[in-house]
């Protein structure tokens, strides 16, 4: 896999089918779905529980707005990911182009996915810092690899954005 800046886009080249599949899972992984832990993390409380009025007003007025914001980002990412649906050679390496105008949406969607997965699997600090752990073994290990891979992409996007300013 190779990542580089090409004109007004970031290009992820030579993306193997396994990593391409992980990328395809970004929008789905960003949804809290049936995980209360993920829901609680993505829509965390704005104050201590004693601030009852603020917390309840937040749920009514702010949370729907945040939900719309997050969904808009994942929708942009979903559209970019359509490039990965190559039907002629299903197991060939492919290239993904992320327009620079979409980098904020990608940062948000990758972050939503990482936080939702980490909350669902309750990864410890130690697990999250262990970058040498093998991704093979269990669904949990694969999810940890997913969190780290998405983090690597976030880091690259941030570096490119910084270079752009």
């Amino acid at each position: 896999m190779e990542i580089c800046r090409q004109d007004q886009a970031l290009e992820i080249r030579e993306l193997d089918p396994f990593l391409a599949e992980l990328l395809r899972q970004v929008p789905e992984s960003a949804q809290p779905n049936d995980s209360p832990a993920a829901e609680e993390r993505l829509f965390s409380a704005p104050a201590a529980p004693e601030e009852k009025d603020l917390c309840s007003e937040w749920k009514v007025y702010v949370v729907p707005e945040l939900r719309r914001l997050f969904q808009s980002a994942t929708e942009t990412v979903r559209q970019d990911l359509q490039q990965l649906q190559c039907t002629d050679k299903p197991f060939a390496n492919c290239t993904l182009r992320i327009p620079l105008a979409h980098t904020d949406a990608w940062l948000s969607a990758l972050n939503q996915a990482r936080l939702a997965i980490a909350a669902t699997y309750q990864f410890s600090d130690h697990e999250l810092c262990d970058h040498y752990r093998s991704p093979l073994g269990s669904r949990r290990d694969l999810s940890l690899f997913q969190v780290n891979f998405y983090g690597f992409l976030q880091e690259f996007i941030l570096r490119e954005m910084e270079g752009n300013t």
């Binding site: 965390s44 704005p46 104050a47 201590a48 702010v62 948000s108 972050n111």
Partner: peptide
């Protein structure tokens, strides 16, 4: 302060006001 916390939540940071 509430507005800032709302913006920080938009970036998915754990932020509160007190």
């Amino acid at each position: 302060a509430e507005l800032y916390v709302q913006q920080l939540h938009g970036y998915l940071l754990l932020a509160t006001i007190e």
